[in-house]
Design a protein around this nucleic acid. Structure first.
Length: 292
DNA sequence: AAACAAACCTGTGCGC
DNA sequence: TGCGCACAGGTTTGTT
């Protein structure tokens, strides 16, 4: 369930362990992962390039390469990026392996893997995830959804004013609004529920009914919940699809107030019981007492 | 414009 | 115990 905090955790891992290395060799198993282009396009686009940076927009990872192209990775539901020592045993569903060079002399030493060569694995049982190398000058054609992405509440300036301009002119259920990547990029099902609980707003309330205090609570909740989740390294659920670059779990699941807590007493008010309903075709958890 | 449905795919966990 | 099935997650596309 990689959402913004999980993708940000992965991005930070890439910054430490991939940036500055050269891609020596690429293996692509299942071609479905590169369906937007082809196996050859990914191999040719990556081989021989050096990774210049690791960036994130919403749930999309973007890595500029010294060729002028960019690598885009989306983990979708079950994708993982992992770093490993060369020759390590690969887990099932490892669809792409990029062999990265040692770091150049003078680079800082980073963690247990040191500066020797590493492998970067893309693992994805459900194969919804994808990788593509594209020309950023043609992003609107080659990766149109990137060009249509809404504001990133962590990477972009995101004040109450930006939120107000998204919320006021529409009449959308708040849950659906938070999930709409064209408006705000990066919030998924878990964090939408947690944000609305923190803001004390019902998920089915419509956006044009918020008064200024409610709008302010929503803004604060978006910023604070995402920041706390990033600090915790994201959420790893029981079926544990999400892990960081080294296979480590996050801990924000322990801080969930409503997601996955159907039928439990609300820990915030101590009175209400967490309900599960369906909104925007997604399971939605909230406390009918706290959230209005 | 907004809501809804289906599609993509596989592992997990439930009920019988 | 074993089987079958609903379900989970993100996004696009198409329909109402």
């Amino acid at each position: 369930m990689p959402e913004l905090p999980e993708v940000e955790t992965v991005r930070r891992g890439l910054e430490r362990f991939a940036v500055g290395r050269r891609v020596e060799h690429v293996e692509v198993g299942r071609e479905r992962v590169v369906r937007r282009t082809s196996r050859a396009a990914l191999v040719d686009g990556l081989t021989g390039t050096t990774v210049l940076a690791a960036e994130r927009r919403g749930k999309y990872i973007r890595c500029p390469l010294d060729s002028g192209d960019e690598l885009m990775v989306h983990l979708r539901m079950s994708g993982q990026l992992l770093v490993a020592r060369p020759g390590s045993t690969r887990p099932p569903h490892t669809h792409v392996v990029a062999h990265l060079s040692a770091r150049p002399p003078g680079a800082a030493v980073h963690g247990v893997l040191g500066d020797g060569p590493v492998e970067l694995w893309f693992v994805d049982p459900r194969t919804f995830g994808e990788m593509v190398v594209f020309d950023p000058d043609h992003v609107a054609v080659e990766v149109p959804e990137l060009a249509r992405l809404g504001i990133d509440p962590v990477a972009d300036p995101f004040t109450r004013r930006e939120l107000r301009e998204l919320v006021r002119p529409r009449s959308r259920q708040l849950k659906a609004l938070l999930l709409d990547q064209h408006l705000i990029a990066g919030i998924g099902n878990i964090y939408a529920d947690e944000i609305l609980h923190a803001a004390r707003l019902r998920p089915d309330r419509t956006s044009d009914t918020l008064n200024p205090p409610a709008e302010a609570r929503l803004h604060t909740a978006i910023v604070e919940v995402l920041a706390a989740a990033i600090d915790a390294g994201g959420s790893s659920l029981r079926d544990a699809q999400y892990v960081d670059l080294f296979g480590g779990a996050g801990s924000y699941q322990d801080a969930h107030r409503v997601y996955g807590r159907t039928g439990e007493r609300c820990t915030t008010c101590g009175v209400g019981w967490v309900r599960r309903i369906v909104i925007a075709q997604r399971s939605t958890h909230y406390c009918p007492r706290c959230q209005r």
